[in-house]
């Protein structure tokens, strides 16, 4: 589980994570936003349907693949949040 430090609030945007509206700081990565929301796993794997979550946070491991605005296999750690963005857990190869 993660938490946000109690810092002077930056400007924010509203995104929809697994159907729920969430206010998050502008400019942060989708992976950071979903980790702070503690949604558990962010995808299941295509081969063995195992739960996974962001691992490297720097675009190397491809474990943070999510469905962003309807497009599967997006690296959540390499995409910045945008107002109105829809972020969904990815099941397998992106169904």
């Amino acid at each position: 589980m993660f938490k946000r430090l109690d810092e002077s609030p930056p400007s924010t945007v509203t995104v929809v994570i697994n159907g729920r509206s969430v206010v998050v700081p502008q400019g942060e990565s989708v992976a950071a936003a979903v980790l702070a929301e503690n949604i558990g796993h962010t995808r299941t794997t295509p081969v063995k349907q195992q739960p996974r979550a962001p691992f490297c946070m720097m675009g190397v491991c491809f474990d943070c693949l999510m469905v962003i605005d309807g497009i599967p296999n997006q690296q959540a750690c390499m995409v910045q949040v945008r107002d109105g963005m829809r972020i969904e857990r990815q099941h397998g190869s992106g169904v």
């Binding site: 589980m1 993660f2 938490k3 946000r4 430090l5 810092e7 700081p25 942060e28 990565s29 950071a32 980790l35 702070a36 503690n38 558990g40 796993h41 962010t42 195992q50 739960p51 996974r52 979550a53 962001p54 691992f55 490297c56 946070m57 720097m58 474990d63």
Partner: peptide, 25 residues
Amino acid sequence: WTLPGVMNAGAGQILFKGSGIVPAD
């Protein structure tokens, strides 16, 4: 090592530096 909740320390640091996000407890 593939379980959610296991993460690179560098990744933890990126979360901290970039977003002020830290482990809850």
